[in-house]
Write a protein that binds this DNA or RNA. Sequence first.
RNA 1: CGGGGUGUAGCGUAGUUUGGUAAACGCGCCUGGUUUGGGGCCAGGAAAUCGUAGGUUCAAAUCCUGCCACCCCGACCA
Length: 489
Amino acid sequence: MYLLPQRKKNYSKWYNELVAKADLAEISGVRGCMIVKSFGFSIWEKMQEVLDKMFKDTGHKNVYFPLFIPKSYLSKEISYADGFAKECAVVTHYRLKTSTRGNIIVDPLAKLEEELIIRPTSEPIVWESFRRWIQSYRDLPILLNQWANVVRWEMRTRLFLRTSEFLWQEGHTAHDSRNEAITETEKMLEVYTEFSEKLLAIPVIQGFKSSMERFSGAKQTYCIEAMMQDGKSLQVGTSHFLGQKFSKAFDVKFTDKFGEQNYVWATSWGCSTRLMGAMIMAHSDDHGLILPPKIAPIQLVIIPIFVNQIQLDAIEKVVLPIKRSLEKQGISVIYDNRERYSWGCKLNEYEVKGIPLRIIVGQKEIENREVEIFRRDTMVKNMLPQKGLVNSISELLEEIQKNMFQKALVRRNYLTTEIDSYEDFKEILDAKGGFLSAFWDGSIETEEKIKKETTASIRCIPFNRKQEKGLCIFSGRPSFQRVFFAKSY
RNA sequence: CGGGGUGUAGCGUAGUUUGGUAAACGCGCCUGGUUUGGGGCCAGGAAAUCGUAGGUUCAAAUCCUGCCACCCCGACCA
């Protein structure tokens, strides 16, 4: 069995090697940018497929806006521009030429009159368009989504978790009332929550961001936070109530039923290839990736064990009908009869890639009319009768999906601690990590100081928490609610 | 941007202290044989102007200088 570096000993080494060995992605020659390999991309495509359907089912339509944003658009919404100013890639020229020494150089004569910013998000160009598209309440709501790449010039990058260029989806909506926009913000947070918990099998905490962590340009940022195995928190998705900030900045008004001019209400929401990182870090073990069945591009692999063509033929007679009936049930199966790889090699390959189920069929199984089945999540092998196999496998996939969520939930709960003093806070953060649920006085100063001293930040001000009175662990001032602190990615 | 480190075959490294046959090892790759219930074994083979530019020297992967790239730790962030 293949073994990666141990998670407990060196978490980031484990993560990097897993990404490489599972053939998900690699560091490219381009600073801070990754190459997503075909297996990794097939997982992302599966995520896209499910999310895309969820967006469409909630009334959204896909569009595509340009990669470049004229610099002047950016300066219209100041808090937004400030938020991203330090990490924008800028296009200044439009032509290259061959120098006298034979090198390719930027043609100094081809300087752009107005620089183009490579989008860190698309709000500016979306709202520039909305101004032209929206005149009347009849034009609203506008419910759009786009699948795109964005660029943020990051100082330090990690595959999937933080790269300078990443893939994501960004929803942009415009509404005629504050309430409708808030409802939309909440609805999309629900979509992300369902996706995370039901598909990725990752339990999440729903809540608001503190003003410090809020998306620059948003009135209120809603988020879902997930706990990774090393006790660090990862934001899985965000949904922003933008209020009228962008409509005012871009002068987007509509005439309502009573003939009054009003500014439009807005939301935006997104999730990215970071979900890949979440999935890896929430579930995988020292043998490699573990894919939740509902997101696995391949749910089951069949491996034959044979020494000659006669045996292989006999195996195929049994295996191919099984494969067909599984596919009929919507289960994605591959039958790996490659002769140039030893079967032992194949076992390791699918194990490290996290394929949920594996079947082995050899002479023994054919004689006994059974198959050997292996569950990746528990690493347990069993024999199953060939009769009724399709049902057993469907049930197993369900069970794996549930088990993975349950396991992650138990871990998350273990890694959530109620804290009532700053001493405990520092001690637990150091010893165990995870979410620290603690009273906070609501001030930015306190949040900043705690972050500076401990590196833990407020990940989330959770919804649905009982209102309790307490004292801020840092300042001792009165507080009405516990918030979740954690170190984060 | 500050501190530290590393560049030698596709990947991972040894060799650098003390200059001396233009280079070793593991994985991977190719060929042939053999084997087959958890990454098989044997034999043979291909593949590196030692990051780059210059300098010192009879002689440089090794010493000196500049440059470039990447990694780690901070500051910044989804």
